[in-house]
Amino acid sequence: MRQSFEYHPVIGYRFIPGLKARIPHEGGGYLIRVNDCGFRCERNFITEKKPGIRRVLLFGDSFTAGDGVSNKYRYGDLLEKKIPNLEVYNFGLPGAGTDQQYLAYKEYATGIKHDLLLIAVQVENIRRVAGHYRYWLNERGEQVCYAKPYYELVDGTLILRNVPPRKEPIHEADLSKEERKFIAVGRFPKLKKMVKLVTRVGLKDLAQKAIRYQLAPEYNSPDNPAWQIMRAILEEWINNNRQRVLLMPLPPYQYVEEMGDPSHYQARFREVASATGCMLHDPLPDLLKYSLEERRGFRFQKDVHLTPQGHAALATSLTPILEKLLDDLEQGVHK
């Protein structure tokens, strides 16, 4: 398999600019095309906007970058097909936290003329925001740990750390016991062993449903330190952007398949929207309108990323909201 990412001195990494590749996958494999800025977008990023074209800057992680599906099946690309005269600049970066997505925005997007900034926060991203390190696979399929940039909140101010992040892998053993807590695992460490056990016996979904799986307790309280950083990043990002912002929490499958209670994260994102005045779109209610069988088909058999059906459902949920927002903007309803 080809190397897909290269080192980036601020964000930590990005796709290799100009890359065209096919990634083997349980879904049959998918095609990726990377633009000359190092993002998985069919378009090269141009500062100026053509007259009559509406442009959305889309940020997110692998769910937005489209792990598991070819570019054309992603919800961002589907929006372009559904909404006339729309350009979506997809800045989705797999494995990235909201902190790195914000850094990508600052590095590459601030000068780009646009009508709307769409920040798609995969709910689990909060763990990455809290992390200072992250595991990756090397060419031999071994897990290696790399440093990532991160923010600290000091007296209400976001301080960027670990920039430039170290290029070389870090041995976990070389980290202090305290620092080891900041290795982002991406998933749910407390329940990891249980999940492993029930996965082995094939009862994972059932077990999660039975216990109304608490996926990300970081959202339980507005005072949670991880959430505070996340919120600060989102607020700074939204407030610094001159155009309208649409904030969209992307629910992991556990919520889509009703194995968990989403109210905690929903409350937190409402708080951000209320504090910043940005628009909020929660696609979960729309997704829940599909039958459970259909919703199960929104993710792959083993990989939890969105299938083409999942992306299509998300695009269907977003389209009327986005269309109205863009029309209103054109007519000067919003600033």
Partner: peptide
């Protein structure tokens, strides 16, 4: 493999 892919590999490995 494009030169950019080669450079990405060499750069990551130092």
């Amino acid at each position: 493999y494009k030169p950019s892919e080669v450079v990405a590999f060499l750069g990551r490995k130092g």
